[in-house]
């Protein structure tokens, strides 16, 4: 295993229009096995930042390093083989395909010899999905969809798993089971980068919290300390972010 961080961005500039970037020069380093929560008020650029890392939003400057390798210009479909998996907030499963087909098509990128074993591993990890592989994924509940989306991302055994608001639209009970699942995945050695509006829940499982404001990294720190930091409330309530500069 290399000594390089699991994931790093250097001066990352990204967005939908070159003249109007949403992410404006973010430097962030995430160590191997870390669980980092990306926090910030609405419009801070959290989702755009992780989408740029995943490759679904264009980068206009800076670099993305995965395990020391520059993947900034790497095509979207190759990032998963490189070890980077992303679970979008919405439309994160193929609703017209069955549960089994969702997992099978994710396994199709693996060498043939590995596919059956990885599928078995996912079925064992998500017994609720394993009980009805032929069910159309569009018929699943919100929580089950999230499980399937995570299972689809995990089947390639990524080094880094990125999730964009996995708790969005879920009931509190389901949210706690999703977060428990993420914690368990992280303990198995997968580095996790988590964008989350549910600050309390995210910091409860994260090692570190990172706060973005207006497309820039405003503050980062230990998750437990950040949870009690008044700065967090100030930023979320929209109080003078410039006072909060660390």
């Amino acid at each position: 295993m290399s000594e390089a961080p699991a994931l790093a961005t250097r001066g990352l500039v990204a967005g939908y229009e070159r003249d109007l970037p949403i992410v404006r020069g973010i430097d962030l380093t995430i160590g191997k096995g870390e669980l980092v929560a990306i926090l910030g008020p609405n419009g801070a650029g959290k989702s755009t930042y992780v989408k740029a890392i995943a490759g679904t939003v264009p980068c206009f400057g800076g670099a993305i390093m995965l395990d020391g390798k520059d993947i900034t210009a790497m095509p979207l479909h190759q990032r998963i083989s490189a070890g980077l998996a992303f679970v979008p907030q919405t439309e994160n499963i193929f609703a017209s395909l069955s549960i089994g087909e969702n997992l099978q098509l994710a396994a199709d990128v693996l060498p043939k010899a590995l596919r059956a074993a990885r599928l078995e591993k996912m079925w064992a990890m998500f017994p609720d999905l394993a009980s009805r592989p032929a069910l159309r994924a569009g018929q699943l509940s919100g929580g089950q969809r999230q499980m399937l989306a995570v299972a689809r991302a995990l089947i390639v055994e990524p080094q880094v798993l990125i999730l964009d608001e996995p708790s969005a639209g879920l009931s509190p009970k389901i949210v706690s089971s999703v977060f428990a699942m993420l914690q368990s995945i992280n303990r198995s050695g997968v580095t996790i980068l988590l964008v989350e509006q549910n600050v309390k829940a995210a910091l409860a499982i994260a090692d570190r919290g990172v706060i973005l404001v207006e497309g820039q990294l405003r503050h980062e720190g230990n998750a437990a300390q950040l949870a009690t930091d008044p700065l967090l409330a100030e930023l979320y309530l929209g109080a003078q972010p410039e006072k909060a500069s660390a």
Binding site: G55, T56, Q78, I80, A85, P88, E91, F94, L97, L105
Partner: peptide, 16 residues
């Protein structure tokens, strides 16, 4: 079938 439903997600799933 995956590309037919959602091209961006298909790319994220490793499909060229």
């Amino acid at each position: 079938r995956a590309v037919s439903e959602n091209q961006a997600l298909a790319g994220l799933a490793g499909i060229d």
